[in-house]
Design a protein around this nucleic acid. Structure first.
Length: 463
RNA sequence: GCUCCCAUCGUCUAGCGGCCUAGGACAUUGCCCUCUCAAGGCAAAGAUCGGGGGUUCGAAUCCCCCUGGGAGCGCCA
């Protein structure tokens, strides 16, 4: 069993973990777990200008939140510079790479000229056969084949061929000696024993260049799998202007990590007609080769639904526990856990996210509720207040403040005053919650308890 | 500009030559439940499978062309 699957997620720490990256990480992780292989985290931080420790931490926090535990790493490319240098030297010694003395601005000018001439911009090979060694700064380029075809068999896309004429001698080390992306990726993937390179679609065109590097070394190719991208509603690559793109924002909005994972998994992947999966089910059913090829649009509405489905699996106690931090976010303390549990449980069908749930449950915890203007105008008029007065008198005498006992009081008022339930329930609801929307009114009253109910009725009557 | 990739309801998708008068889910609409709002149940609407040619007895499924979208073409990653 020497061919255990080894995969990696290799983000650049130039931002926190975004939705697209999370999906790539997810598919790597699912594949690794399904195959009982190894999942490696590698931080591609060679861009010293833009990479930061904070982003590295933020990415790892995001992965932990989503539950993507890695078996090895995080490896940092900045700590592997010696390794890259060795590999560059090896190619130089074997004559598979060469020094290029062309200046960057010169290169840029040539690129523009080729573009203007309607040709594909690529290196013209000026220094390819050069034998002199001028005392000038130089970059190192791979001596790529001029003819032939470079082909890959992508697990998701199938067989893809690239004409080597379309490729050119890419730079593998800059004039300051640092290695470039395509080179470090190959060296890392080889030395880390990566068997499957699972990454975003945007790297598909990089692949033949990397294959050339594998071939220059004589290394066997890994299996590639290129995942489709995730778009915003306008079918453009998901970005900031589409709203939340960072996974930590979804955490802050009160989404469940397993729901985000479930939703992301269904973007590009499906198992029969199943929509809701536990982690275990996903790991069991996941199949990389069945992943779709077309990009998919991120749909918050469906994420909301998936979230509510997962939330529904929680017990009342669990829901209360995880909602508490969001109440705190609203500046509300829930000292009495038993009370909070009942209060939040009564609202649990009314919030798709924990944040929404905290918001709709907030009235239970406020000392002073604000009346929604329209609701107050409609239901706290003279008629409504009169009804509330009667209600208050009767509830006052009630020792057993249970839901059935309260229901009896309502029934009595209804028949004696010849009222409809709506006539009593709505003024009462406004008095208790400030709005016309809440769980069943008997339930709300019994949860609030006699003391709060009396206070709120009194205030409404005096309104 | 050149190269590569992609294309089924508004959205996520099932489909891998006959089971498709194209299935499910989200969203939408209506009904039921009902003290409001949700949740739940039921139902409806919604895709001439991007377009055009082939191949075949038979095509959403295979081939070609076109169109549209995306990505890449850095001494960024």
């Amino acid at each position: 069993m020497g061919n255990k699957v080894r995969v990696r997620f290799a983000p650049s720490p130039t931002g926190s973990l975004h939705i697209g990256g999370a999906r790539t990480a997810l598919f790597n992780w699912l594949f690794a777990r399904h195959e009982k292989g190894t999942f490696i985290l590698r931080i591609e931080d060679t861009d010293r200008e833009r990479s930061t420790e904070e982003f590295t931490k933020s990415i790892m926090d995001g992965m932990k939140w989503l539950g993507f535990d890695w078996d090895e790493g995080p490896y940092h490319q900045t700590e592997r510079m010696g390794l890259y240098k060795e590999h560059v030297d090896k190619l130089m010694n074997e004559g598979k790479a060469y020094r290029c003395y062309c200046a960057p601005d010169e290169l840029e000018a040539r690129r523009q000229a080729m573009l203007a001439a309607g040709r594909k911009p690529k290196y013209d090979g000026t220094c390819r056969e050069r034998t002199d060694k001028p005392d000038k700064p130089f970059a190192i380029r791979l001596k790529a084949p001029l003819t032939g075809v470079t082909a890959i068999d992508d697990l998701c896309r199938g067989h893809i061929e690239f004409d080597n004429k379309e490729l050119d001698d890419l730079i593998i080390a800059r004039s300051d000696g640092t290695p470039t992306y395509n080179f470090t990726v190959v060296v890392d993937d080889v030395t880390m024993g990566i068997t499957h390179v699972v990454r975003g679609d945007d790297h598909l065109n990089n692949t033949p260049r990397q294959v050339l590097i594998y071939q220059a070394f004589g290394y066997p190719l890994p299996t590639f799998a290129h995942l489709p991208m995730i778009f915003g509603p306008d079918k453009k690559k998901l970005s900031k202007r589409h709203g939340a793109t960072s996974v930590i924002e979804y955490e802050a909005m009160g989404y469940l990590p397993e729901a985000v994972v479930n939703y992301l998994a269904r973007l590009g992947w499906a198992y029969k007609d199943q929509e809701i999966f536990t982690r275990e089910e996903m790991i069991e059913k996941f199949d990389l080769s069945v992943v779709g090829k077309a990009p998919s649009v991120f749909d918050t509405e469906k994420l909301n639904w998936v979230n509510s489905q997962h939330l529904a699996k929680y017990s009342d106690e669990q829901v209360a526990k995880i909602t508490l931090p969001f109440l705190k976010g609203l500046g509300l303390e829930a000292a009495d856990i038993g009370y909070a549990a009942k209060a939040i449980a009564s609202e649990r069908e009314r919030g798709k996210t924990l944040k929404e749930l905290a918001e709709v449950s907030a009235f239970y915890f406020r000392d002073h509720i604000d009346y929604d203007q329209n609701s107050a105008t409609k239901w706290l008029g003279e008629k409504g207040k009169g009804i509330l007065k009667t209600l208050k008198e009767r509830l006052e005498k009630l020792d057993d403040f249970s839901e059935p006992a309260i229901a009896k009081v309502f029934e009595g008022i209804l028949s004696e005053m010849n009222l409809k339930m709506l006539d009593v329930a709505q003024p009462c609801r406004v008095a208790m919650t400030g709005t016309t929307v809440s769980p069943g009114i008997h339930l709300v009253l019994s949860i609030l308890g006699k003391k709060r109910v009396m206070e709120r009725l009194e205030r409404a009557i005096a309104f």
